[in-house]
Design a binder for these strands. Structure first.
Lengths: 349, 349
DNA sequence: TCACTTGCTGAAAACGTTACCGGGTTTCAT
DNA sequence: ATGAAACCCGGTAACGTTTTCAGCAAGTGA
């Protein structure tokens, strides 16, 4: 009778499905059906089983379930090294949404540059996760293609580059956000509005630039390439860009920075030059990360619904995991202009 | 021969230990030994097996391993809602350290206030994780006691309250960091140094206060309770505290805020009052989160080695998981004063 | 009454791995 | 030469689930 346990039975072991079945006087199959809500179970036995489950605080062992059913209840989320504050808001949204589905996040750091090819795969797949939510610093298409070829199900949140049509994505409405911001500056009376962009090959840059141009065009303002400066998303880049702008013979009266760190950098260089924000120069950022509330004056910025993006990513992924007949979805979530103190009326005409 | 697969064999299925064994012409037991580096295997067969493993990119199925060996290779990390930027640095350190051990993070959000009692337990234990790294917004001892009583192995990183001696903890050297900061202000010639603290019942407040007092005492400066204001770690609290300090008949010439948001808030209120930083008032923060680089002037602050704390937490946890004979360890990591632009010479005597 | 369906339940195979057991084969000191 | 010890490796139970399949009881239509 006494089975040979092949590992030391530590205390604190929890109830198994077999014990629950025994206590409830049913078979383990029935318990499984109750737990998963699958198949036929009479109300009477269901209630009996549920009561035993509650009493013993039983929850299914995830490893066993993963092994048997092929689904682990775990979702892999890549953790990019950069932009940590930005990132954690997305993750919070993801965690929240998954929690309600009784699933968990497994973090897969993308640390070293070149182990990714193999690494991403091994980390995310093979009995570890059911699917992935990828928040990548920059996509390299080949890894994504490999993942796809293995049939791995994943969603890219906040894509940086343009990627395969068939990959579902969630992003912010970049161009309309940029349009909003620019339009607001125009309404304040600014006509000479500079832009500090991210790297030109990135999607966010491209789309925000489109919104910026669209707003200018609508207002009948001719864009001046001299006051559109490409940078690198970092504070320091913002400082340099800001400095460069005020070297010009005809400096701008407003700056639209394509993310918050750039805006902060620009603001610092403006202040360093002895100019005042917003009296002399108005500044608008993009993202609404925590930084925007830490800066003086408080930064007017375009809020990306980051947590929402995480939640939406989860719901796309779930659709992917359930129906395998999916149409590749690309969701864009609306942005919102948050007016704070770094913007003011343009120059009197 | 053809077994009945009880689930649809999706493409992209990966090699199993049985296939590797077959290709290598050995038993699965031997493959397991090679993979885990346990037991005796001759160099010859080891190399042969390893080559097959490489060729097929085999990695053990984590669910199966978890089920069989009782260890899942997953570590639960609680995800507090607040202080996301602060937190993600710790997690990055944890992820990095775990990655090298071929382990992964499972995020367990502590979302709802009152499901914790049951929630934490169910989320972290029961075949899901081997151990936990807890970064809690505030500890409630009862949950920790329950976890301990179940024999769950965990480490608390950056403990907020004083907790059971037997729980290993990793924290920053709060009092010596506060001592450093205060001493630095004293060296600059400041004598009237205010403190804006966190809630009085928290460990960080208590310890930083001790360092602050120690430094003052060493310099022969009598502490004045009137310029020690208790607050709540938030920017807004810093603003209020700063405002209050300059209502005083004899306002301070320097402020030591017990975290960066408080420092930022204080700085904002000082500026709002028409005073200059650091010419009129010097300000020092604590934490060195990203915010300190986003503020003008750049904030002088005490750096907590957050990523290091995460890594150290992992190494304590590993010790816990291996030898079960552990002495409860309490590690304190050194802090470092980062001098930036928000501090300057004190008033001429 | 009989065949058939529907609702419900249990037995048992399978998932992929680890660790124990035991049977060999060397190596080594005496 | 010989017994003991170390080394090597295969067979297999066990981990806790899910899912298929078969079976039974009760209801249904002819």
């Amino acid at each position: 009778m006494a089975a040979l346990p092949h590992k030391n039975g530590r205390s604190g072991q929890r109830a198994t499905i077999r014990e629950i079945a025994e206590f409830a006087g049913v078979s383990i199959a029935t318990v499984s059906r109750v737990v998963n809500g699958s198949g036929y179970v009479s109300d009477k036995t269901r209630m009996a089983v549920e009561s035993v489950i509650r009493e013993h605080r039983y929850t299914a062992n995830r490893s066993a379930r993963g092994l048997s059913a092929g689904r682990t209840g775990l979702v892999g989320v890549t953790l990019p090294r950069i932009h940590p504050s930005y990132f954690s808001v997305i993750v919070a949204g993801v965690a929240e949404a998954l929690y309600e589905l009784d699933m968990r996040i497994v973090l897969a750091p993308t640390l070293h540059e070149h182990d990714r090819e193999v690494g991403l795969l091994e980390r995310l797949m093979h009995g570890t996760t059911d699917g992935g939510l990828l928040v990548l610093p920059e996509e390299s298409g080949s890894e994504l293609r490999t993942l796809m070829s293995y049939g791995y199900r994943f969603v890219v949140v906040d894509p940086r580059m343009r990627i395969d049509e068939r990959v579902p994505t969630v992003s912010a409405a970049n161009s309309s956000g940029a349009d909003q911001a620019t339009r607001y500056l125009l309404e304040l009376g600014h006509r000479r509005i500079a832009a500090i962009t991210g790297p030109g090959d990135m999607m966010a840059t491209e789309e925000r630039l489109r919104g910026y141009h669209a707003a200018l065009a609508t207002a009948g303002v001719l864009p001046d390439p001299a006051i559109v400066i490409e940078s690198d998303w970092e504070v320091d880049g913002g400082r340099r860009a800001g400095a460069a702008l005020f070297e010009l013979a005809d400096p701008p009266t407003a700056i639209f920075a394509f993310n918050d760190p750039l805006a902060v950098g620009a603001m610092q260089s403006v202040v360093a030059r002895g100019l005042r924000v917003p009296e002399d120069v108005s500044i608008v950022g993009f993202d609404d990360t925590v930084e925007s509330e830490f800066v003086t004056p408080l930064l007017t910025t375009v809020r990306q619904p980051l947590a929402e993006m995480g939640r939406m990513g989860v719901s796309l992924l779930m659709r992917l995991l359930e129906n395998r007949s999916f149409e590749a979805l690309h969701v864009e979530l609306a942005t919102q202009l948050i007016v704070r103190a770094s913007t003011g009326a343009g120059p009197a005409r």
